[in-house]
């Protein structure tokens, strides 16, 4: 076991938490990510591999699905897998095993920072950030869009819970954007 100490995307030992009005904004460092992309002609096999990891349905375009391990659609025949870091640090290895050479898997854990917005009235925050139509962006929806020039994955986990994955190097900029929008909305 190595003895290196991890830092969060915002550069601290502990995640950053902010509360404002009805909204909480939490830095979430505890997740592992792996991308999985079907090899040519192995689209079906890849979907089956994803199902073995997340449950009965692999998400279609614009959606996420799963429980402990979830998958969200990122592009044609491409998904991102996400799971708790503590239990699934080696999510990419599990995915490689399940893919059986039918899909390309790449560890993505370090590439992203994640911030979670919780509370009622999230639409009022999101409408200041990105062009997602919150009226139809219900639990189970997932999409990539631009937030203050940053390409981000936005997942509606439940009615009062949205998570945003942004480029890790821009964690501070993204956190600032989110906090500014929350304060402007409430």
């Amino acid at each position: 076991m190595h003895d290196l100490i991890a830092t969060t995307a915002l550069g601290a030992a502990a995640p950053c938490v902010d509360h404002h009005g009805p909204i909480s904004l939490t830095e979430e460092p505890g997740f592992a990510l792996a991308s999985i992309a079907a090899r040519r002609g192995a689209e079906r096999a890849t979907v089956l591999a994803i199902r073995r990891m997340i449950g009965p349905t692999a998400p279609k375009a614009g959606h996420w699905a799963g429980e402990r391990i979830i998958a969200f659609w990122t592009g044609p025949d491409q998904w991102m897998l996400e799971a708790p870091y503590d239990s699934d640090e080696f999510l990419f290895e599990r995915a490689i095993k399940e893919a059986k050479g039918k899909a390309s898997v790449t560890e993505q854990t370090g590439a992203w920072c994640r911030f979670d917005l919780r509370g009622t009235g999230l639409a009022a925050v999101m409408e200041r950030l990105c062009p997602i139509n919150m009226a139809t962006f219900i639990a189970g929806s997932a999409t990539r869009t631009s937030i203050d020039h940053l390409g981000c994955f936005v997942l509606c986990r439940s009615e009062d819970h949205i998570s945003i994955h942004g480029p890790r190097s821009c964690a501070a900029a993204l956190h600032h954007s989110l906090l500014t929008a929350i304060r402007a909305a409430f």
């Binding site: 659609w73 990122t74 592009g75 044609p76 999409t143 990539r144 390409g151």
Partner: peptide, 10 residues
Amino acid sequence: LWYHEQGDRS
């Protein structure tokens, strides 16, 4: 050609 660079990269 339009590249969905901030979306699904299609």
